[in-house]
Design a protein around this nucleic acid. Structure first.
Lengths: 218, 218
DNA sequence: GTCTGGTGTTACTGGCGGGTAACTTCACGC
DNA sequence: GCGTGAAGTTACCCGCCAGTAACACCAGAC
């Protein structure tokens, strides 16, 4: 484990232990840092290979403690996904708020989304592993993701109409760049030579490029 | 389950049962169709949520039968990954054999790889779930993947030198389009409106585009 | 000092599922 | 018909880990 990762882990464990005593905020803070610690662990080892005992140890408590903040291991995973999809929604909303052309908004979304997921400690990593959730949880998350997909396809169609980008199948194009973006969490780590912001900028550029006018090579 | 999926499943189960009796090839054929059936199941439900009993039932046999063809569940997963990475190697080798510019080779690789993974029944889906393998297996697979990555980066550098594509960080660029490509197995299904060949062609175009000369938008 | 509620622990249960032992059946050579 | 080995089954074991029960400690209130 690198120093950087150690710092982050300690930061999370710290948040748990420095939560103000007695306040009702304490509960929320602890719950959040539990989710984050778990998200990190899930990212490193996968959901099923991560035991609650490990998560607990990372926070320097014991397993039964965790059950004061969550109802089940499943709920932890669901919360991780909720945070991740929430970041995507936020990024999209912000991009729309800033305005600009359809392509600008797509680029803004991509950058904002990567930025958020790589920067938020602990949550950056869970986006795979849909099938580890209960079907109901999966459905709830998928629904929100589909809404984002739909909006992105609309933006793509708009950008095509405006002549900003080459004609393409919006569905496949969205799959293409969302695949690339979601792939980030599989290799990203805080101690790499590039930080999240840089990656977000580079990837946003690639997203735009992947849509730009071009001659077919086939 | 769709008709098409049913067909494929039946085809695999069929391969198991129609394997020529007594020959030593029989063993190989059965082993292969076992891997494929398992690969399909892993893709649908994830490694840990797929039980050996389910895989066995899909082949109309019982669990202990499977142990005549594989040593453990882990080995099945490893074989799935081996097949997948083998396809990547094949695709790259073929692209190099065909020759052409560095960018042509990258495009050829992308198309060939997607084509193979979407067409080969059952194996298209496993590429995530590294952490479900034993560390040794993971290492073996990663090593081969790294070799491919390295070659792709070289080709990218070459393409930059030749002025075929815009300057970029080869490492991140490869991560970008490999993320998109590997993402395919998360949503692809045989019964979609597009078949594997089409997706391969479209995605190869996007890969090329994502690397093409462009002005920065930031 | 003792009651109360929150914080935390140790020590258990119970089910799931990978893996196996031991048995049966069948095909085939002789 | 009979021995032999492969094909296939039933019925089991056992480890792991999510989840829980029951107890211990320690505030602060009064």
């Amino acid at each position: 484990m690198t120093d950087q990762e150690n710092d982050n882990r300690d930061e999370i464990a710290d948040a748990w232990h420095t939560a103000p005593e007695g306040s009702s905020r304490r509960h929320d803070i602890r719950r959040l840092s539990l989710i984050q610690a778990a998200g990190r662990a899930f990212g490193r080892k996968g959901f099923h290979r991560t035991t609650l005992d490990e998560i607990a140890r990372e926070l320097s408590v014991t397993k039964p403690m965790l059950y004061r903040y969550v109802r089940s291991k499943q709920e932890i995973l669901y919360e991780c996904h909720r945070m991740a999809v929430g970041m995507a929604e936020e990024a999209l909303a912000e991009a729309e708020r800033r305005g600009g052309s359809a392509l600008d908004r797509i680029a803004g979304f991509a950058e904002g989304y990567i930025d958020r997921t790589t920067t938020a400690l602990g949550t950056c990593v869970v986006l795979t592993e849909y099938y580890s959730m209960t079907p109901e949880d999966t459905e709830r998350i998928q629904q929100r993701r589909r809404a984002i997909d739909t909006r992105l396809r609309e933006l793509l169609a708009q950008a095509m109409d405006d002549g900003e980008i080459a004609p393409c199948d919006p569905k496949l194009a969205v799959f293409f760049f969302m695949g690339a973006i979601n792939g980030v969490n599989r290799w990203f780590s805080d101690d790499g030579e590039r930080d999240g912001n840089e990656i977000a900028r580079v990837f946003a550029d690639h997203v735009v490029a992947s849509l730009s006018p071009r001659k077919s090579r086939m």
